[in-house]
């Protein structure tokens, strides 16, 4: 096995990781990046306070930042993939500058582009996204490689004063699709209705 295929053997499974993070967190506001992480949050249970993206690659962190600034009393979780995060790396600098205490970012890093044929991303090579986040000024960052490290990271992801960013290394494995609704207006309206009430739907 070549060095850039090391994620074939990582111990953590992405759907187990996402389920462990979101299970029982009924008040959590979730933005999921396009592709596999949108399917992961849906496999853990489709809910009105999930906003799974089907496009807008590179926008998940910025969208989570806007939500976190607008809802400072609520925990906001951005779950996205390494490819999506690489496309929006500047938004880590923007999020660090705004420093919302309620924003948590989890990058589910399988070192591949899952929707286009499992080609390797830059994280299979030289790029360390947790180090990038730390260098941008995200005050709490972590790298999670196994279940013990995930157990330790969970309370930080869900409760620590943020912004917080964890890179969770997961096994590169193509999984069955678990698709959320794809109509964007529906996703927006159900989220705002659940968060702000029926009068928030125009």
């Amino acid at each position: 096995m070549s060095e850039d295929r090391r994620s074939d053997d990582y111990p953590l499974a992405r759907r187990d990781v996402v389920r462990q993070i979101t299970e029982g967190q009924d008040d959590l506001l979730v933005i999921a990046g396009l592709g596999s992480t949108a399917w992961d949050v849906t496999a853990a249970g489709d809910r009105d306070l999930n906003f799974p993206l089907w496009g807008a690659m590179g926008g998940a962190v910025a969208m989570g930042l806007g939500l976190a600034l607008a809802q400072p009393e609520r925990r906001v979780l951005v779950i996205t993939g390494d490819g999506e995060a690489l496309m929006g790396m500047g938004s880590l600098a923007t999020a660090a500058m705004q420093a919302p205490a309620n924003l948590s970012i989890v990058i589910i890093d399988n070192e591949r582009y899952g929707e286009t044929g499992m080609q390797i991303t830059h994280t299979a090579g030289t790029t360390d996204l947790a180090a990038v986040a730390a260098a941008c000024g995200i005050p709490v960052t972590g790298l999670v490689l196994n279940q013990a490290e995930l157990d330790a990271a969970l309370p930080v992801i869900l409760e620590a004063t943020g912004p917080v960013l964890h890179v969770v290394k997961v096994r590169a494995k193509k999984l069955d699709f678990v698709l959320p609704p794809k109509d964007g207006v529906h996703l927006k309206n159900r989220f705002r209705r659940a968060l702000l009430g029926a009068e928030a739907v125009i």
């Binding site: 906003f51 590179g58 989570g64 806007g66 600034l69 500047g90 938004s91 968060l195 702000l196």
Partner: peptide, 20 residues
Amino acid sequence: VPLTTEEEGVALLAGAWLGG
């Protein structure tokens, strides 16, 4: 909110609107 590139702003404002 200063941005590193304008496209961040499109996503940022979408998130802000979700939050009211």
